[in-house]
């Protein structure tokens, strides 16, 4: 009975979703907003990567929200885990030679790649979030391979987190005061298209986000590991 009812409900839902999907114009340039982004994205924001021009230009306020969500997730995790009692679990295996050597070789490269990704967010694919996540995955590798880990410096990571977020916000507020009086307004010159120093405030914000996301994601892994040690 219960199963029957839920299957019927799911079928009704599926029918509606299919109806909605069939209304969507796949492969046609009907989407007005997206069309505007691809046509005018370059002039409006000065970023060569259209995705970045949407993420930090047109919808920069959403990105501020996403950055806050990540900050919040990190704080929330720390709140929940700090209340739990520490409990022991199985001993760690000592990492193998391959892992150790690979780590030494790859770790600097991963950090460099992550930095490249977030610095060139306005030119090539990627950006602050992706670059930060790449850096954090480098730290995951570090935790796997170094047996007696020197922990992440919480002072520094807290500083990066807060300062990164604050830079984003302060840039937004400066935009409110300067020029055309809009929050997150691009008040820096757009510069020469498709060079590192272009697209106004976008690279500055992406560097701040890159540091922030990198330190936050690494801190999440660090806090989780600390509790399980």
């Amino acid at each position: 009975m219960k199963k029957g009812v839920s299957i019927i409900l799911l079928l009704i839902l599926l029918w509606g979703v299919v109806a909605a999907l069939s209304e969507m114009p796949f492969g046609k340039a009907k989407l007005e907003v997206a069309g505007h982004y691809t046509d005018y994205g370059k002039e409006d924001t000065g970023a060569a990567n259209i995705v970045t021009s949407v993420v930090l230009g047109y919808r920069g306020f959403d990105t501020l929200g996403e950055v806050t969500v990540l900050f919040l997730a990190c704080i929330g995790l720390a709140v929940v885990l700090s209340t739990l009692k520490k409990q022991g679990c199985g001993a760690r295996q000592t990492p193998s030679l391959i892992l150790n050597t690979g780590f030494r070789f790859l770790f600097p490269l991963i950090l460099l790649f992550g930095t490249y990704v977030f610095m060139h967010g306005h030119l090539s694919p990627g950006g602050g979030f992706q670059g930060g996540a790449v850096i954090a995955s480098g730290f995951v590798l570090m935790y796997l391979s170094v047996p007696k880990i020197k922990r992440l410096n919480h002072f520094v990571s807290t500083l990066f987190e807060s300062v990164g977020g604050l830079i984003f916000l302060v840039i937004g507020l400066i935009g409110l005061k300067l020029g055309s009086q809009y929050f997150l307004n691009n008040f820096l010159p757009n510069g020469e298209f498709n060079t590192l120093l272009s697209a106004g405030i976008i690279p500055v914000i992406y560097i701040a986000i890159g540091f922030k996301v990198g330190s936050e994601l690494s801190k999440i892994i660090d806090v989780l590991l600390e509790e399980s040690e």
Binding site: R59, F61, D62, V69, L72, I75, G76, V80, S82
Partner: peptide, 27 residues
């Protein structure tokens, strides 16, 4: 979509605050 983002901020902070006292029922 902006509403969704702020809604997430609202929800995630309330999840964490419900668990703030750290007792079993809270978690």
């Amino acid at each position: 979509f902006n509403l969704f983002v702020f809604f997430e901020i609202l929800c995630i902070s309330s999840y964490a605050l419900v668990a703030y006292l750290g007792n079993r029922s809270g978690i």
